[in-house]
Amino acid sequence: MNVKITTLIENKEDENNILINEHGLSLYIEIDEMKILFDTGQSGDFIKNAEKLKINLNKLNYVMLSHGHYDHSGGLRKLVDNTDNSFKLIVGKGFFNEKYKLVDGENYKFNGNNFDKEFIVENNIPIKYITQDLFNVTEDILIFSNFERNTEFEILNTKFYIKHNEEYIADDFSDEIVLVVKHKKGLVVILGCSHVGVINILKTIIKRTGMPIYCIVGGSHLIEADELRLKGTIEFLKENNISMLRLSHCTGENATKELENEFGNKFVYNNTGNSIFVSVK
């Protein structure tokens, strides 16, 4: 099995400064003949980048949205408007909850999707809601949900809320899903934002599969990590001897510097336009 992951859009610009970057994430994943789009950024500009990179988004088998925040789902409308919509959509349970962020300590700002269930129905897009702990797309392509939360230093951010019956309740991110590919070298783990804690996610995946992790790609939400959390995260990654760290988006500058210092060439910031190869060789 060969795996190639191309970052269609991300916070940081590409090396040649010819692509569009934005606060968000969208990954184009090729697993042999399977074509998967994991998240869609916030604006839909990932489509322009795909065109420049000569990636055909009409050939998608699946679109997977890691959670219902605008910077991961916001580009879906433009994808639907600009492709033949031959894909199947996969989201977590609770994906369509109304999500908000508390700003200035008192104001709630809408932080969720720019489409609803009706939009999916109107455009005849098949949709799968992940409710189980582990869902097999194929024998080697897995989606995880319902993560165990037993890492003491990983605490949910208290700025995120769901609006329900005109009340704001803390968002527990039960909609968060993670894509995992079984590879000869180990598991390739593809993250959206890791709101439930990147170590909680990795521990759960290892426990459920009994397999080692080879590569991690995506957002780790270490942007607000204190010294204790960052140290604990680095210790876990070292203890599990993870060979490829390709984190970005919500990882943050401080965590990025620490990861670079601790892991050397094992860590590469996965900016816009970057490609990751995990081959059988």
Rank of each mutant, 00 (worst) to 15 (best):
E51M: 13
F144A: 12
F135Y: 15
I29L: 00
N111H: 15
L245Q: 06
K101C: 05
G192Q: 02
N85M: 03
I190Q: 10
V188K: 09
D175L: 08
I9W: 02
D14I: 01
N56T: 02
S73N: 09
D81W: 07
I206F: 02
I199C: 03
L230E: 01
E176I: 05
I125W: 03
T251G: 11
I143V: 15
N261G: 07
D140Y: 10
S43Q: 02
V198R: 00
E166T: 11
H72Y: 03
K48W: 01
Y100A: 03
I234N: 03
N123L: 08
L89S: 01
Y108F: 09
E166F: 06
T151K: 13
T256Y: 01
N11G: 13
L142I: 02
N241Y: 07
K163C: 06
I216N: 06
V63A: 11
R208Q: 10
G105Q: 10
L191D: 06
T151H: 09
L156K: 05
N241I: 06
K163P: 08
L65A: 07
N270S: 14
A170D: 06
L79D: 01
F236M: 06
E10P: 05
T131Y: 14
S145P: 12
I127P: 10
L187V: 04
R208D: 07
N114V: 03
T251D: 04
E224P: 05
R246P: 05
N111S: 14
V280S: 15
I9C: 11
L57C: 09
I141P: 04
E22G: 00
L187R: 05
G232I: 06
T6Q: 10
C193E: 10
D39H: 13
N271I: 13
N56F: 04
I20N: 14
K163A: 07
N111Q: 12
I213F: 01
E15I: 14
H164K: 15
T256W: 09
C250D: 15
T204W: 00
V80R: 00
